[in-house]
Structures are given as structure tokens and as C-alpha cells.
Design a protein around this nucleic acid. Structure first.
Lengths: 332, 332
DNA sequence: CTGTTAGCGCCTTCAA
DNA sequence: TTGAAGGCGCTAACAG
């Protein structure tokens, strides 16, 4: 089995084919100005030697690496996983590679990773960066080309899920079921995602004076949701809107464990529509952020930048409300 | 804000510091043979110009990229996500970058990605490759350094979860609860993971003639598990062992929907202990493959290879049985 | 159409 | 201790 005799260089191919380096380079890159006969001979030689041009050397001379960096706050987060997957596959389809970096929710790491990964790639995609707006604005300048996911900054291409609209849809859904006392389990206080949700809630309050929405500081994971159960039950609310599906599932599990029936006694809605959402008991009503699509679109934007295409306007993907068994009419 | 004036090269630093290129290189790389005074001057100049050596150029001349590739069959699979996360963080701690590639469960893609990503990195980590043994053996030769996760091939460093032992533990658990008729929901027939499970089942059968284990072809996701519910209920078994947690959750949901009580009528055990497993109703008994640890250990092996350290013997991580509410005594 | 010649940006012998 | 020169492997002008 002729495996890459590590070290075979363009010179070896040239020697074997009896031509110059440049001819090899041209032939292998499909340059039409090369004699078809020679081209064939070169390709045979290359194949015989199992030669492939060194990506590193090409990167240096061409000034591009065929690689983009993706900086993510936490690879364990299902939403980011889905984004990464959509992005990775879309990029692969365009023959680009993906360098992934996990900032572990650290703002400092995020900044550093963005800068260092950018140096070895052609562009960087920041996924839901945790940096505050001023720092983000400052950072992206030195990063270009850059694409933002779920954040925006000046003229930087952006793809976002419309959290506001999604929350509004969920609240409308609950209200239509007769719920007038709703409790919101808030996520990380300083997060942008949380701010968007509060924003939507504020708008809803203004539009519906008869509906009371109280807020309980909670968190973003299962345990946070489970821990919030007593407070939710004590609130007397007939429905609860969790920061995300993880929280909703934690809450669901905990309230059921204490005898509360869902949705008869309490309706629960989540957010994200993670794969597991349709398999809880009862299945969870939630809003789907099309995360894979978000990733694919982010790549599409990046590709435009790399090809020097004109910047398209920011994309706002509308999450889809998925009604399942965890919501029902308010108990009277 | 002095952001990278894109294009600042080592020559610029040399000029500003009034020294030669070599001195800059040496000073910035901490070479002790450079006059401390000059070194300081060089560093100041570099800082003033916001200079950092081009990783690509360094890669070319040094012959290493400070990057490793990870090839995964499916980024959407929670287990691979956890592995990737553990790996990525461990690598980052050693100042290495991670290039990630998703083969989309395609064997051809897997082979191609392994080869192409290897060329732009210092080594490749194959995560649960789907290639058959012969092809894998052939492939890894040209890939070195390479580390395998959940597969092995000759002397190639490997980290694996001991599926056999884990399954055995689950079966012993069920048997101890009095179950004598157990149904196994098989995963993808040709997969190595499935073979390991069947292997464990075979051993268990041999050791316990009084316990009947039947096998139902199923699949690896929620829907497969849900679809298998009728067959499971019809089998008359008092316990079922699902290929993984997703299958178990699908089954759990479907059997409950048809009035079957878990664990009173049917005990269910899963596999993987995905984060959601402890939040189903009832919580799922399962075996935990320490995926993050698997990733971290894979990196550790790779680092050894990169540093030319002596190869350590294959690592076999023992999954931990986590007993929760989905298993109970067999109904009489 | 093909070969020769310069680099891409950096590190590292080799002399001084 | 420092500088000059020669590559790392490849592509792209520039001649022929």
C-alpha cells in the first residue's frame, strides 16, 4: 500500500515527470495554459508518488488557509453544537475547514481565542459572544472578516434568531389558553439572550394589562429549573415560561415529583426545541431556533466575505413555535 | 486602539528595534543567547507594533502547526460533543488548536477527511471511526501520529470506553432485580458499538442460563426506540436494555403513552448517561461513558506522540452504572 | 506553452 | 552575542 512517503515534494513530481516545478504547479492547479499531454504526465507522476501539495506552504504563498475559526462559549451546549454542525457541514461543502475553540464561557478567553485563531485562519465566526458591546465593537475591527451569530456590531454581517418574536409567540400561545398569571424563569442576568427575553416580556406586558408576568431568577440548566420548582408552585401561576428547554425539563421533572400535574395544574413552555423536547412526559411545548440553519447561514455570510461579495443585510431567523403536550388550558 | 495593522512583519519590528531579523526571532522566542537589553528593546518594538509571528510561516519552517484534527461521525451526537469538548479544552490548555471535521456518518468522507485534515495538522484523532477494521488498519499507517477513540488498530494509541463491562453491569443489575426475560434493542447492525454489546450479552447468556435475552433490531435514536415499543410490550419481557439513552427515552415515552408503567410493568435501562437522562420521568437508569474524560485522555495520548514520548498502553475507561428510577423489581 | 527567478514570513545554521 | 544567508514548499510574475 503506497502510503504518503512523507516528504514527497513538488520537486519529486517534477523530476519524475521530467518537467519544471512551475509546470507541475500549473498542471495540478488546473491551469489551462499547460499542454494536455504534459498535464497528464504530471498527474500520473503525482498519483504514482501519492503527492498532494502542502496546505501549509500554499497557505503561506496564497495568503489564505481555507480554514475559518469558530469561537463558541461552550461546546457542551446543544444549541452551539447544532450551530457548529450546520456551519461545519456547510463549510465542508465549500472545501473549507473549521477550527473550533471553546471559550468555556470566559470573556477573556473569548477575546484571546478570537484573536489567536484568526491569525491561523481566513476569518472568524463568533458564536453568541459574551463580550459586552463596547468590547465586541472594538474586537471585531481587528478580526475581519468576521461574522457574528446572535450578536451584532456595526456593519459586521450577522445572523440571529429572533428571540423577541419567539418569546412573544410563546406568550400569545399561553394567553390564548387562558393563562393570566405566568412566571418567567430568567437565565443568566447579564446575558444578551436573557435581555431579549425580558424585552419581549416587557412588550407583552404593555400590550396585555390583564396578564401578570412575574420573574424568578433561575439559571440555564436542568438543576436550575428543578430548584426553581418550589418558587414556581408557590407563585400561584398557571403557566411558566422557562429560559430554555433544559430549565423547562428540570422544572417539569421537579413539579411532577411533588404531585403537580402538567399541563392540568401548570403549563410549561421551554425554548430551543432540543431533540429531547419531544420526548419528555408530556412532550414539551417550545420554540425552535433553527440552530443548524443559523450555522449554515453564518457560513454563507462568511463565504461571501471571503469572496469579496457584497455584504448582505443582517439575517433574522424566526424561531418556530412548536406546541406539544406541556401546555394546556389554564385551570379555573 | 492599535489593532493589528495587518501586514506588520518581523522586518518591521527589526527596523524599529534597530536590529536584524534573526535577533528579533531569537528575542521573541526566548532564546537566552540574546542580550537582555536588546531583547527588551525588541519586545517593546513588537508590542508597539502589535506584532505576532505569523503562525502559517512558522508552521512551514518548523514543520508543525500546533493544531490537531478531530474527525467525528456526527457533531450532533451528544457523546461526540462531550468528547470533543473534553478534547478541545485539554488541547487548548497545551496551546494546541483543534480542527474539527464531521464525516456525516459517511465512510468515504471519513477516510478523505482523515487524510486531508491530517495534512494541515500535526496529528489526527479519529473518534469512533466507522471504517471496517481492514480499512482502518490501512488508513492509520499514513496518518501517524494518530489516536483512536473507541476503536483500536495495531499499536496505535487508543482510548476506549469498556462497553462490554458496562453492559455486563447493566445486565447484572437487572438480574439482581429479579428480571429473567430481558429484551435488547439493538443499534446499527454493523457498528462496532453494537458488536461489543452483543458480545457482552453473549457472555451473560453463557453465565446465566435462567435468563432469557431476546434481541429486537431497532436503531440509535428516539424514534427508533418509540417505534420498538409495541414489539417490546408484545415480547412479554419485564425489562429492556436499550442501545443508548436516546432509544431508551423514545421507548420510555412510547410505552408510557400506551399505559405501561415504568418501572412497575417494565424496567428500562439506557446507555451513555446523556445530561437529560436524569430528568426523564422516571429518571433513566443508565451506564455513563465518561465522554469528556475520553476526549481529554485522547488528547493526552496525542500530546505524548507529538512530544515523542513513549507510547502508553491502551486506556480502557470503565463506564459507571447509574441506577435511577426507570428500573425496579420484576413484576411477579 | 514552459522554465527561471522571486518571494510568502519565519527560523536556524554558519561566520564574524 | 549578532548578522547574513539559506531554505521550509509552493505559486506567480517574468522571460524565453
Amino acid at each position: 500500500m503506497p502510503r504518503p512517503p512523507k516528504g514527497v515534494t513538488i520537486a519529486d513530481v517534477a523530476a519524475r515527470a521530467g518537467v519544471s516545478l512551475s509546470t507541475v504547479s500549473r498542471a495540478l492547479n488546473g491551469n489551462p495554459t499547460v499542454d494536455p499531454v504534459l498535464a497528464e504526465r504530471v498527474k500520473d507522476a503525482a498519483a504514482a508518488l501519492d503527492y498532494t501539495a502542502s496546505p501549509v506552504a500554499r497557505s503561506l504563498v496564497l495568503g489564505r488557509t481555507q480554514t475559518v475559526a469558530v469561537v463558541v462559549p461552550d461546546l457542551a451546549n446543544p444549541t452551539f453544537q447544532a450551530i457548529l454542525r450546520g456551519l461545519s457541514r456547510a463549510a465542508a461543502a465549500d472545501d473549507y475547514h473549521v477550527l473550533v475553540a471553546d471559550s468555556a464561557e470566559s470573556i477573556d478567553e473569548e477575546r484571546i481565542l478570537a484573536i489567536t485563531t484568526r491569525r491561523r485562519t481566513d476569518g472568524v465566526i463568533l458564536c453568541a459572544p459574551r463580550l459586552d458591546q463596547a468590547e465586541l465593537d472594538r474586537l471585531v475591527g481587528g478580526l475581519r472578516p468576521v461574522v457574528l451569530i446572535n450578536r451584532s456590531s456595526g456593519e459586521v454581517p450577522t445572523v440571529r434568531a429572533d428571540y423577541r418574536a419567539a418569546l412573544a409567540a410563546e406568550l400569545e400561545h399561553l394567553r390564548a389558553l387562558g393563562h393570566r398569571r405566568i412566571v418567567f424563569l430568567a437565565g443568566t442576568a447579564q446575558s444578551v439572550a436573557n435581555a431579549a427575553r425580558l424585552d419581549a416580556i416587557g412588550a407583552f406586558r404593555a400590550a396585555h394589562a390583564d396578564t401578570e408576568i412575574t420573574e424568578i431568577p433561575c439559571g440555564v440548566d436542568f438543576d436550575a429549573g428543578a430548584s426553581a420548582a418550589p418558587a414556581v408552585l408557590a407563585s400561584g401561576a398557571t403557566a411558566s415560561l422557562a429560559f430554555n428547554d433544559l430549565v423547562a425539563m428540570g422544572l417539569l421533572s421537579a413539579v411532577q415529583a411533588s404531585g403537580c400535574r402538567v399541563p392540568d395544574d401548570l403549563s410549561i413552555v421551554g425554548f430551543d426545541d432540543i431533540p429531547f423536547a419531544s420526548y419528555t412526559t408530556p412532550p414539551l411545548t417550545t420554540a425552535a431556533v433553527p440552530a443548524g440553519e443559523l450555522g449554515a447561514q453564518a457560513w454563507s455570510r462568511m463565504r461571501d466575505l471571503l469572496e469579496g461579495a457584497e455584504a448582505r443585510h443582517p439575517l433574522l431567523l424566526l424561531p418556530r413555535l412548536t406546541v406539544r403536550g406541556s401546555t394546556g388550558r389554564a385551570r379555573s
